[in-house]
C-alpha cells in the first residue's frame, strides 16, 4: 500500500490527526463507519451524558428508602428506571458508603467507567498513577483528594471491568434533612460517586 512519506519519529499533533483521519476514511470506505453517527456520539458524550445523571440516582436513593434497597440489590435496573441506560451501563453495581466503610472505584487495567451515570472519566482516572495507587495506597490517594477518613473506617477498592462497573452511593451529609431530591442532587459531585470525594454539608 502506498503511503505518504512522513518525517521519521514525527509525533507532532499534525501526525496524530492524519492517522485518525486516515483510519476514519479507511473505515468509511469499508462501510463500517458513518461519520454522522460519530458526530452524534461525540455530541452525546460531550453535552448530554454526565455526572448529573448519577447525582439524580444518588438523591433518589437518599429520599426513597425502597429505591435505595432496589438500587443496592439490582443497580442496572434501578438506574434504568430513571431513564439512564446505554454503553457501559449494562452491568452496574452500587456500593454504599457508611460511617464504617468507604468505597472507591478504579479500573486497574484500562478505564472502565459507568458512562450513563457519570459521563466519560476524568483524565486522572485514566492515568497510570491513580490506577496503580488506588489499590496500593488508597488512603494516601484519598488524602490527596482532600478526603481524610478516621483510622477505623475500612476502605474498599472496587476494580471496574468491561463486565461490571461500580458507582459509589455517598453518605448523605448532615444538615440536609429538609432538602428535597432536586436540592440534594445539586450537592452530589462526580468525585463523591467515584469515591474520591465526600458530599459536603451545605453549610460548609
Amino acid at each position: 500500500m502506498s503511503r505518504t512519506p512522513l518525517p521519521h519519529h514525527s509525533h507532532g499533533p499534525g501526525d496524530i490527526e492524519l492517522r485518525v483521519s486516515r483510519l476514519e476514511k479507511l473505515l468509511v470506505d469499508k462501510g463500517l463507519v458513518d461519520p454522522a453517527a460519530m458526530d452524534a456520539l461525540v455530541d452525546t458524550y460531550e453535552n448530554r451524558v454526565g455526572p448529573r445523571n448519577g447525582a439524580h440516582v444518588v438523591a433518589r436513593a437518599w429520599t426513597d428508602e425502597n429505591y435505595r434497597k432496589r438500587l443496592l440489590e439490582n443497580a442496572t435496573e434501578s438506574i434504568m428506571e430513571l431513564g439512564y441506560r446505554g454503553r457501559q451501563g449494562e452491568h452496574m453495581q452500587v456500593v454504599e458508603n457508611t460511617s464504617k466503610v468507604h468505597n472507591m472505584v478504579v479500573c486497574t487495567l484500562c478505564s472502565c467507567y459507568p458512562w450513563p451515570v457519570l459521563g466519560l472519566p476524568p483524565t486522572w482516572y485514566k492515568a497510570s498513577s491513580y490506577r496503580a495507587r488506588a489499590v496500593s495506597e488508597p488512603r494516601a490517594v484519598l488524602a490527596e483528594f482532600g478526603v481524610e477518613l478516621a483510622k477505623d473506617v475500612e476502605i474498599r477498592v472496587w476494580d471496574s471491568t468491561a463486565e461490571i462497573r461500580y458507582l459509589v452511593l455517598p453518605q448523605r451529609p448532615v444538615g440536609t434533612e429538609d432538602f428535597n431530591e432536586n436540592e440534594l442532587a445539586k450537592l452530589v459531585t462526580r468525585d463523591s460517586m467515584i469515591g474520591v470525594g465526600v458530599v459536603q454539608s451545605p453549610q460548609s
Partner: peptide, 29 residues
C-alpha cells in the same frame, strides 16, 4: 441538564473525540 465534569473538557482535542467515537461506533455496528 449539562454534564458537570469538574471544569475539565471531555476531550482535549478533536482527534481524541473522533478516535473515541470510532471505537464506540464500531462496537455498535
Amino acid at each position: 441538564g449539562q454534564p458537570e465534569s469538574g471544569g475539565e473538557p471531555v476531550f482535549d482535542a478533536p482527534w481524541q473525540a473522533r478516535a473515541f467515537a470510532m471505537a464506540v461506533h464500531l462496537n455498535e455496528q
